[in-house]
Design a protein around this nucleic acid. Structure first.
Lengths: 213, 213
DNA sequence: TGATGAACATACTACCGGGTATGTTGTCAA
DNA sequence: TTGACAACATACCCGGTAGTATGTTCATCA
């Protein structure tokens, strides 16, 4: 598989399809997006997509998996960070929100995938494929959940119910996938400001004790 | 239009359809839900639905409008409440969250309607119908927005950016439409506890000054 | 250099779902 | 009593889309 200069390999072609699919799913939603839409966005036809992915559902599943893998990998370094749980949480939350913005289309697909699974609008076979993927997603969620539980035990956070607090926290941290849109001339530092505000809001919501902030 | 005992009028029939449609849209989403699905949920056929609503989009628009009307009417009494803005906000937020839970299916449709409009996945004619409805939705949003702005001026809240704070606040207050599911044996007071936690989280997120809580 | 298969494009099929056209039943008013 | 209309049910049409079957091109390798 020798490649000339400027040519693209198979994986690049797959990656292009995944990016285009994620963008389409973001713009229209999974159900409304047709395979032809994705192909058109690529300047190609269905043949190319079905050559790499067996079905629309599998294509979506791959976008989903990609989104989860990215975010999972991003916070991995923080997991055994020393120091108080709040500090670890702040680091994780910051990375999480930043990634929600930077990989918005994929993360939006993850959200829709979770919704689809909860609503059970998947075929039986797709259902356990998604089940596997959601296991990772759940594991990821539990990392945060345990962290805020630990922070509460350390007296750095205060909330009544862990499950509800966890839900609200994730809603906050994920929310940029709904309302963030890039401005022209926006720098990476501008985005950092946004991330800071989201994290600060979540921190306040979780009842962070004054002084730990 | 004399009605015998136990019979239902036209408006009741319409209302039944709207409730069934809202329930279906909640379970599957607008795009995936077919008119036959709604009809089946009613133990009826398409004929009944198309007799009352000209199209699927119009049916959805009516569900959407109903959701907005309900919430708009609910907080109306609070709008000229005397006292500090934070207190007014707490009252409004509490009513809002409670209604999100009590009329979850309709409010979920409102959410999806906003998404659809933002993504532009509506026909040109439906687009200005939705435009009208979204005006009310925007006006509703502005009531909250102005309230937290006022609360900040009064020194009862502290946040960096009003728009972002407003987005995060609404994400929090609306979030029960995604994660709340009724438990068996759950009392109205149990739900009040949940509402309190959601409101408390948002209050903390908005940087409510200690002592005003 | 010819054969083989990857990486697509093109042409086609099958089905589902929105919408419509047409029946059917009950009620009310004249 | 009957005609008219509301309130549906039934039967049908048709466009769009997932998926398939079949070309076509080009690189690689024996």
């Amino acid at each position: 598989m020798a490649l000339s200069v400027g040519e693209l390999g198979v994986e690049d072609s797959r990656a292009d399809i995944l990016r285009a699919a994620a963008a389409c799913f973001l713009e229209r939603g999974y159900a409304v997006t047709s395979i032809d839409d994705v192909a058109r966005a690529l300047g190609a036809t269905k043949g190319r997509i079905y050559h790499h992915f067996p079905s629309k559902a599998d294509l979506f599943a791959e976008v989903f998996r990609t989104g989860i893998d990215m975010i999972y990998a991003a916070i991995a370094p923080c997991r055994d960070m020393p120091g108080p749980a709040v500090e670890r949480w702040k680091k994780m939350a910051t990375i999480h929100v930043r990634l929600m913005i930077d990989t918005k289309s994929f993360q939006r697909a993850v959200w829709e995938g979770v919704e689809m699974h909860l609503r059970g609008s998947t075929t039986p076979q797709q259902r356990d494929v998604f089940g596997k993927l959601l296991e990772d997603r759940t594991k990821y969620g539990n990392i945060f959940r345990e962290t805020i539980a630990e922070a509460q035990r350390e007296g750095a956070m205060r909330f009544a119910n862990l499950s509800i607090a966890n839900q609200l926290m994730f809603m906050t941290l994920n929310s940029p996938i709904f309302w963030y849109t890039p401005r022209d001339g926006e720098t990476s530092e501008d985005i950092d400001r946004i991330v800071e505000q989201v994290v600060a809001y979540a921190l306040g919501g979780l009842g962070a004790t004054e002084g730990t902030v």
